[in-house]
Every structure is written in structure tokens, then in C-alpha cells.
Amino acid sequence: MIHALRAGAYGIPFMPVGGMWGSDLVGIRPEFYQIMKSPFDGAEVVCVKALAPDYAIVHVQEADIYGNCRILGPSYQDALMARAAKKTIVTAERIVGSYRMQEEPKLTAIPHFLVQAVVELPGGAKPGICYPEYQGVEWDKHKAYQKAVKADEVQKFADMMLEGRL
């Protein structure tokens, strides 16, 4: 997936990947995997198709009103997603002044020009974890979610979560 998103970010149609030999995944999804020969020495490589998402949707701890985002702690592949996508939608634990980014520009994981929308949304990763804001899963809510999935009541669960009734 990382290479598919990279190809999207690089603006190229596909990308060779390391590893993957011996995996049956390669054969079962020809719309995503193909094997080709290197034009330089004929060595075979596995390739994945580019993914250029319409939107990347990320939740961050700090954003300014323009969409400059700081991700505290593990950043996973969020910055890559933002570069691969046409535009990014950001939900943020809190809106901060741009001076935060100006203090240490390197810590801005996603710059404003990649972002189309910023939503202030404290608790936006709940009932999961958002380092270092809330570090434990809210188990009662997670159980309610698991039950809702089984009972086909995800929308009801969404209403309760979004309206703070859980």
C-alpha cells in the first residue's frame, strides 16, 4: 500500500516494490499487482498500481485555520496519504495559531496547500486512542460499536457518539 500511495504522490502510474516474492497475493489481484521485467537488466519485479485518492482524511492533534498540521507522536502514513491525495480533509483535536508552526516548521507534517478542509473536532479519534491526548480505548463504547456492527445499527451508534449520548 505504501508504494501504491507513493506512486500516487509521485504522479506515476505504477511502482516496483521490494519483497512480495512467494506471496499468493500477487496472482489474485491483477488489477493491483503485475510482474514486469526491469528495462535495465531484465530482472523481474513486482509492481503495484498507483493509488491517487480523491481525499485523504486524517485526524491530527494540532492544525491552524489554514490547514497546516502537526502530528504529535507516531505519524504512520498520514503525510504520504496527504501527498498522494488530490486534497486532504483534516479533523483536529484543537486549532492553534500559525506561530506554532513557525516555531519549528519541520514539525508540520502536512502543509496548508494540500488541505481543503479543517474541522475542529476534539475527541475525533474516539473511542480509539490519540497520543498524547487520550491514551486508552474507551472500552464500553468500543463494545457498543462491536454490538452495533453485528446488529446492523452502525448509524444508530454514530448518532449516539456524535450527539454525546454514549
Binding site: H59, G124, A125, G128, C130
Partner: peptide, 19 residues
């Protein structure tokens, strides 16, 4: 639409947005 969704497992995923 094709959406890339951030975070990892139970960590910093935009769950309220998708809800």
C-alpha cells in the same frame, strides 16, 4: 470516491468523521 484514511488500528483514526 477513493479515500485514504489516516491513523492505524485504534490509534488516531478519524473515526468521528467516518461516523
Amino acid at each position: 470516491m477513493l479515500l485514504a484514511i489516516g491513523g492505524n488500528a485504534m490509534h488516531r483514526t478519524p473515526s468521528l468523521f467516518t461516523l
